[in-house]
């Protein structure tokens, strides 16, 4: 048994069958190890893992509210340093996409700017899933959610996804990366790099949600992989906020058509061939910028 066989996110948690966040948190904790203190946001992660008198956590964690995982973590990190207990201890702030892109954005920016030794991990499933699939600034163009529903006059979500990792990197933080639960080794490598980095690091982890994306519970990983293989979600890392010199960490040999990705989920089921062509064009342009 190796250290990474330790299950720090215990079974018995109430995540839906096939939950991408379950895999993400389980693997991130394996990579970070038991000497970690985490903060989490209100949302799926808190609901599935902390229902008193149970907890799925084998590491110390604190959940305070929705929008402040980063600022609670700032308090934890500074207190650990002040009390002489920070040495060898990682501080990870978890946020969902709502808690990161939207309501927690200010606290996140403040934490990054102040230079705390914290790894912020955004586990992104592209909508407010805990409240029942409402759109977020993380929701991609064309996705139908309960507050950006497809209709006679609506294609679903009408705005593109906010480039959260690039925005975080632009704070000039030492380490920023995007990762996917389909690429576990890459994800764990990036987690290790992030926690070993002195100062703030930001990880944007792509994690499909079968309930909200409306796909089979067995397809979570396949869809996460398709997002990378089609260029919808690009895996990269950047050091010292140098977003002009991104390192692409998973470059698909030949990009698959975006249609393969979109057709795998019913949130995109309404898209016409022209809509898909439009999205393909946007993805092509984005990938060109990334140099592949």
């Amino acid at each position: 048994m190796t250290k990474e066989d330790l299950e720090l996110f215990a079974s018995g948690h109430r995540a839906c069958a096939g939950c991408g966040e379950g895999t993400a948190v389980r693997q991130i904790l394996k990579a970070a190890g038991p000497n970690t203190v985490a903060t989490i946001c209100t949302g799926c992660l808190e609901v599935i893992s902390t229902g008193y008198p149970e907890t799925a956590w084998e590491i110390p964690i604190i959940h305070a509210a929705f929008e402040n995982s980063a600022s609670v973590a700032a308090g934890v990190e500074v207190a650990l340093k002040e009390l002489g207990r920070k040495e060898g201890v990682n501080v990870i702030a978890f946020g969902g996409d709502g808690g990161t892109f939207d309501i927690g954005f200010q606290a996140l920016s403040g934490m990054l700017e102040r230079g705390h030794d914290i790894t912020y991990v955004c586990v992104d499933n592209e909508a407010y899933m805990n409240t029942g699939i409402q759109r977020c600034s993380s929701t991609p163009y064309g996705a139908s959610t309960t507050t950006s529903p497809v209709g006679k006059l609506s294609i679903g979500e009408s705005r593109p996804k906010k480039p959260i990792a690039a925005i975080c990197a632009a704070h000039g933080i030492p380490y920023t990366a995007t990762a996917s639960i389909a690429y576990i080794n890459d994800l764990k490598k990036k987690v290790k790099k992030a926690v070993e980095t002195e100062g703030p690091a930001f990880l944007h982890v792509f994690a499909p949600c079968p309930t909200g994306w409306r796909h089979g519970s067995d397809s979570t990983i396949e869809i996460a992989r398709l997002a990378v293989e089609t260029g919808v979600f690009v895996l990269w890392e950047a050091e010292d906020g140098d977003i002009c010199n991104l390192k692409i960490t998973q470059k698909p040999k030949k990009r698959k058509p975006v249609k393969d990705y979109l057709k795998s989920q019913r949130r995109f089921a309404h898209l016409s061939d022209e809509d898909i062509e439009h999205i393909q064009k946007e993805v092509d342009e984005k990938c060109e910028k990334y140099g592949f």
């Binding site: 018995g12 008198p53 799925a56």
Partner: peptide, 23 residues
């Protein structure tokens, strides 16, 4: 499972979700 409440709902029974069988 019924347990006594703790001060501030601090739960030191780490990993106790395992008592719930999601199988």
């Amino acid at each position: 499972m019924t347990v006594k409440i703790t001060i501030g709902a601090v739960n030191r029974d780490h990993g106790s979700s395992r008592i719930y069988k999601t199988g």
